[in-house]
């Protein structure tokens, strides 16, 4: 009875979707989807993202999305990165006092799945890391960038934790502290890159802006746009590398904390109450 009711609701939703679509395509709203052209702002982005004829306006990256993420709307992305930073910090604060470490004198080969799975996983992890580095480092030329590469690289520690066990991951160097160092390095790098041009401007006595990439009309200095004839997008390459580090290491910390066995967490929590 309940089941039949559920499927009736589903069928009603599909039918109403089709009916609404029919009404709109018959001219119910006065126009049809999709829209024939993009907006003027999009034309501006597409015209200037890689344009040798307008050297004062271009971001010098053939990839318009990466150019918008780190050049046109770079400050926006900086604050998004700080939201990411705060979310990870909040997760770590909830799990404070809980150490991610392997017990002493542990036989690692007893944990995890069979030897065949482990061997295949070793190859897969290497491929995942290589692919993610390629995605991140070619971000200014092909689809990809720091966020994409970092999210792809974060799959590797997760696979290691699931297949080999948490203790293997910790004893092979994927520790909370080292990941925190990597993440801080990434965030520092983002900060340094965004202030690099303005500091250079102060030293050389020329005007410059925060988050400046290419030379502008009133600010004649900037990052190099080409290296050995390959478009580098100036700051975009550095932002992509540092964001890759920050995202990959941040997610790795979270997975390490998530996979701590519940019994040891409860022991820490109850012990903490006893001392108070």
């Amino acid at each position: 009875m309940r089941r039949a009711y559920k499927y009736a609701v589903l069928v009603a939703m599909i039918v109403s979707t089709l009916a609404l679509a029919l009404a709109v395509s018959a001219g119910g709203l006065g126009y049809a989807l999709p829209f024939p052209a993009v907006r003027n702002l999009a034309y501006w982005y597409l015209r200037t993202t890689y344009n040798p004829f307008m050297p004062k306006f271009t971001a010098s990256a053939p990839e318009a999305v990466t150019a918008i993420v780190w050049d046109y709307r770079g400050l926006d992305t900086l604050f998004e990165t700080s939201v990411f930073f705060l979310a990870i910090i909040a997760s770590m604060a909830l799990m404070r006092g809980i150490e991610v470490k392997a017990p002493k004198s542990i036989n690692l080969s007893k944990y995890g799945m069979s030897a065949i799975v482990k061997t295949v996983t070793k190859i897969t992890v290497a491929i995942i890391l290589a692919a993610s580095a390629s995605i991140a480092l070619h971000g200014q030329l092909t689809p990809g960038g720091g966020f994409q590469g970092g999210a792809t690289a974060a799959v590797a520690p997760l696979v290691i934790i699931v297949i080999f066990s948490l203790y293997f991951a910790v004893s092979s160097g994927i520790k909370k502290k080292s990941m925190l160092t990597l993440r801080t390095l990434g965030l520092l790098g983002i900060g340094v890159t965004s202030f690099a041009v303005i500091v250079a401007g102060l030293i050389l006595g020329k005007a410059a802006y925060v988050f400046q990439n290419q030379p502008k009309e009133a600010a004649p200095i900037g990052f190099p746009s080409h290296i050995l004839g390959v478009p580098m997008g100036g700051t975009l390459l550095f932002f992509n590398i540092f964001e890759f580090l920050a995202v990959a290491a941040g997610f790795t910390i979270v997975f390490l904390l998530l996979s701590v066995p519940e019994e040891s967490v409860r022991k820490v929590l109850e012990g903490g109450e006893g001392h108070d």
């Binding site: 979310a87 990870i88 909830l94 960038g145 999210a151 979270v254």
Partner: peptide, 17 residues
């Protein structure tokens, strides 16, 4: 692009809560 990654981070925080 940024919303997807930030969304995952915030979801992880909700999971811990």
């Amino acid at each position: 692009l940024t919303a997807v990654v930030i969304g995952l981070a915030v979801t992880v925080f909700l999971v811990f809560l």
